[in-house]
């Protein structure tokens, strides 16, 4: 394997560069996916049938906690990648662990929020609105959950294999994924929750 030392570790081999470009294109597809989910949410927002509407169920507390957790995790994974660039393995691992813990907190709060909705009579089957809401939030939440598993595998590899071109590449790609989920959350925050609560 040819390693180009003038590049950062995650870009240092040909396959690494292909992986990163491929992942960017994958994120392009993810944007199309979430755009479709947002579009259906906007179209079905008023289709509440006999169930409650968005303003009636959204709560500011859980929203703020979720937002805080996810935005902070995006910051810590940024620090993790920075540490990786400096070649500091332990710091990298620690920042990744913090990131995943914050992500875990986010998922926990989201599950709590869903149970609250169900208590208020808003389930997946209630109306067009509820189906679209749960699907949009659920798809994002499922992405975060998937990220938790994926991230754990990467941390394990960082611990056992150290910072190699391969693990660095995986960590970097994972950070792209995590930042992307953060961006999607900002859209959910503004166009689902804020729009619904105003």
């Amino acid at each position: 394997m040819k390693v180009d030392h003038s590049q950062p570790l995650e870009y240092s081999t040909e396959q690494n560069r292909l992986n990163i470009l491929g992942f960017w294109i994958f994120l392009g597809a993810e944007i199309a996916l979430f755009a479709t989910l947002f579009a259906s949410y906007f179209l079905l927002r008023n289709g509440t049938g006999s169930g409650p509407s968005d303003g009636e169920v959204f709560v500011i507390d859980t929203l703020m906690i979720q937002t805080f957790l996810l935005l902070t995790s995006s910051f810590t994974i940024g620090l993790g990648v920075h540490a990786m660039r400096l070649g500091r393995k332990t710091a990298t691992i620690n920042f990744f662990i913090v990131t995943l813990l914050l992500g875990l907190g986010f998922v926990g709060v989201e599950i709590y929020e869903f149970t609250q909705y169900i208590d208020e009579g808003l389930t997946l089957q209630t109306s067009g609105f509820s189906s679209a809401l749960f699907t949009l939030l659920g798809t994002h939440g499922a992405h975060v959950t998937f990220g938790l598993f994926w991230g754990s595998f990467i941390i394990y590899q960082l611990i056992t294999r150290g910072l190699t071109p391969e693990t660095a590449n995986k960590s970097f790609i994972f950070s792209l994924y995590w930042h992307f989920l953060d961006v999607v959350w900002i859209f959910i925050f503004s166009f689902v929750y804020l729009k619904g609560m105003i």
């Binding site: 079905l44 008023n46 049938g49």
Partner: peptide
């Protein structure tokens, strides 16, 4: 039993 494309309960 969601209501994305159904004709009742706000589906489209």
């Amino acid at each position: 039993g969601t209501h994305f494309f159904s004709i009742d309960n706000g589906g489209m």
